[in-house]
């Protein structure tokens, strides 16, 4: 063991840079924004910090509460779908041969290295009226139609006179597809980490004692993967709740989420105090989620083992 003194200087050397970073680029700007949220606009460019709660009471208008509720609902659906899709994926990766496992993980992580804007535009190219999905459907339609003609049913227009492309973009479903697509890795990775650590002898024991696959999944795998599930839910839900780009680009006329409203306060509305208040309400919701996670983790640590 080296001297304590030596350790201390190493500690400070490692600690100073990130602390400086955190304070200058995170805490100070965030504190300013927090102060703005208790302020009022003065003239065109001024903000008077008068410690008023006016901005927060404005945010409690049913109009904005409704948009918060909608954002929560979209984030909830995104998280739920991600969980349902990610669980089998994570299990498949865990049970894949070691070599394949590496490649499968890479496939999950790969989209992360591509800019979100590019991925979203790619999704637009696929889903739009003259996009790949509709081209595929049209190809199927054409072939089905020529087959019908071939067997003598061509004149009945069973599939309609013309191919009608599906309108998949610019609605809430498109936003949901986009959100699930973007957030899926956030769910797969913690699930994979949890399942990978799982002691397989528990499962073998379960099978030996006569439990089927479903029972083993329900009574062994899920309880043991619970910390991973909780982490996955938290880190999917939080960014999904604050999504801005996806509803903006894929959404229809009623797809605005709270981040879109916040963006407009800082830009076209030029109302920074109100934008700041909305941002902080979003952040309070996030903190609440994290606190809930901490409480659940604590309770789990105290009692709840495999049932």
């Amino acid at each position: 063991m080296d001297s304590w003194r030596h350790h201390r200087s190493a500690f400070w050397a490692a600690f100073t840079a990130p602390t400086f970073w955190l304070v200058v680029f995170f805490l100070i700007p965030l504190s300013l924004l927090w102060l703005f949220s208790f302020g009022e606009k003065e003239g065109i460019t001024g903000i008077n910090i008068s410690w008023t709660l006016k901005q927060y009471s404005r945010a409690l208008d049913p109009l904005y509460l409704g948009i918060f509720a909608k954002s929560l609902w979209m984030a909830f659906l995104t998280t739920l779908i991600c969980l349902i899709v990610a669980f089998p994926v994570a299990i498949a990766i865990v049970f894949a041969p070691p070599k394949a496992r590496l490649w499968l993980l890479l496939l999950i992580i790969l989209p992360f290295w591509t800019n979100l804007l590019i991925r979203t535009y790619a999704l637009i190219a696929v889903l739009r009226t003259r996009g790949q999905v509709n081209f595929g459907l049209e190809w199927l339609w054409d072939h089905a139609n020529s087959f019908l003609t071939l067997i003598g049913l061509g004149s009945y227009n069973l599939l309609g006179a013309d191919f009608e492309p599906l309108g998949m973009l610019y609605n809430n479903t498109a936003v949901l597809i986009g959100l699930v697509y973007v957030h899926l890795p956030f769910m797969v990775l913690p699930l994979y980490a949890a399942l990978d650590r799982l002691d397989r002898s528990y499962m073998e024991a379960s099978f030996d004692l006569g439990a089927g696959h479903v029972r083993t999944f329900r009574s062994i795998i899920i309880p043991l993967a619970l910390p991973g599930i909780a982490s996955g839910i938290i880190i999917t839900f939080i960014p999904a709740m604050g999504s801005y780009l996806t509803p903006d680009l894929l959404g229809g006329t009623d797809s605005q989420m709270i981040a879109n409203v916040i963006e407009r306060q800082f830009k076209s509305a030029n109302d920074w105090p109100f934008g700041a208040a909305l941002s902080f309400i979003l952040m309070y919701v996030t903190f609440f989620g994290l606190a809930l996670r901490a409480v659940l983790a604590k309770r789990e640590g105290r009692g709840g083992k495999i049932t």
């Binding site: 109009l63 904005y64 948009i67 909608k70 006329t253 605005q256 407009r264 076209s268």
Partner: peptide, 9 residues
């Protein structure tokens, strides 16, 4: 701006 938020919502 508030009217637009109302329209979009």
């Amino acid at each position: 701006e508030e009217a637009c938020t109302r329209i979009f919502a």
